[in-house]
């Protein structure tokens, strides 16, 4: 195994992790503040990707596409919050799960209806195509590097917003004690809407970015949603910092596992079965990681002790 390959995969893992963080951050915020478990968060990711693809197709501007992903997902988030989810904050988890599952059906089938089942591919804008030479002789796609940087930037901004701004104070107060912030005279339904829109926008943005590296298709959100849950379980609910570290851990473990486990097995067995065993095991790796965390730290790496 060459050093260059290792670092390239490390960067890929980092990129995946940063995108997972954008998903997980919204999930954690919404759960922490409103006590809502939102399965439809993956749909917002998908909406962002489709909005980006449509706007890029119509205008040719990738920047506008990214803006559209942000806006469309936030808008969709606000609508479902106002029409549906608002009624669920005081309901039990079962009602939340089933209604947000139903929302997935609505969004998935609605999107299939509008756009069909075939994946769409986005063209990366010309200035961002090509590769950059990194120290150590690695040629890495510029666009992926951009994603890592943008993702980390958003993570930092989010961290500052939650920890250093008035809105953040309210969000954290809301996580600690829902009655209290009402007593402080904060307009709680407005706060909820802002938090929801923010979480939705982050998911939509991540969808657009990942969609432009991979493809934009119906149902793309759910696998990422489930990974978002894995991230939250590992990181601990309610911790933005925990979510970031867990997301990067999951991203890197998954990416590296997929590349290197089959190679590792090839050292013992014939290539075909090494590949089969290696990739089957790699697909389970992050869940094994999650199980280990549950055994040793049931409330997550950074969660408060129950």
């Amino acid at each position: 195994m060459s050093v260059a390959l290792f670092f390239e995969q490390l960067l890929n893992g980092l990129q995946f992790g940063v995108m997972l963080f954008l998903m997980a951050a919204g999930l954690t915020l919404v759960f922490g503040v409103m006590g809502l478990i939102n399965l439809a968060h993956g749909s917002l990711y998908m909406i962002g990707a489709f909005a980006c693809a449509s706007v890029v197709a119509a205008t040719g501007s990738f920047t506008l596409g990214l803006v559209a992903s942000f806006v469309a997902a936030a808008f969709a988030g606000v609508i479902i919050e106002a029409l549906v989810l608002r009624r669920l904050y005081r309901r039990d988890h079962l009602d939340q799960v089933i209604v947000t599952f139903a929302l997935i059906l609505v969004f998935t089938e609605g999107t299939r209806w509008l756009f069909g089942s075939y994946p769409l591919y986005l063209d990366i804008p010309t200035p961002l195509q090509g590769t950059v030479h990194l120290p150590g002789g690695i040629d890495y796609p510029l666009f992926r590097l951009m994603i890592i940087l943008v993702g980390l930037l958003v993570a930092v901004l989010l961290f500052l917003a939650v920890n250093r701004t008035r809105l953040g104070v309210r969000i954290r107060a809301g996580e600690a004690d829902r009655e209290m912030i009402a007593a402080l005279g904060v307009d709680i339904s407005k706060l909820y809407m802002i938090v929801f829109a923010l979480g939705a926008a982050l998911a939509g943005f991540a969808g657009a970015l990942v969609g432009s590296v991979q493809s934009v298709q119906v149902g793309m959100g759910e696998p990422v949603l489930i990974l978002g849950f894995v991230v939250i379980v590992i990181g601990g609910i309610g911790s933005i910092g925990g979510a970031l570290i867990a997301a990067i851990l999951v991203g890197i473990t998954d990416t590296m596992g997929r590349v290197f486990l089959p190679m590792a097995f090839a050292a013992f067995t014939d290539p075909a079965s090494a590949n089969a065993t290696g990739s089957a095991l790699a697909s389970m790796l992050i869940y094994i990681l999650m199980a280990l965390v549950l055994v040793f730290r049931p409330s997550g790496l950074f969660g408060e002790k129950a």
């Binding site: 759960f31 478990i37 988890h93 799960v97 696998p223 489930i226 849950f229 894995v230 939250i232 379980v233 609910i237 697909s283 389970m284 869940y287 999650m290 199980a291 549950l294 055994v295 049931p298 409330s299 129950a306």
Partner: peptide, 20 residues
């Protein structure tokens, strides 16, 4: 494993293991 913490974690963990 899913019952280690309970509550909302239970939903996420059962979902994750099935996905595995």
């Amino acid at each position: 494993l899913s019952l280690r913490t309970g509550g909302v974690y239970f939903i996420m963990i059962t979902l994750a293991f099935a996905q595995m």
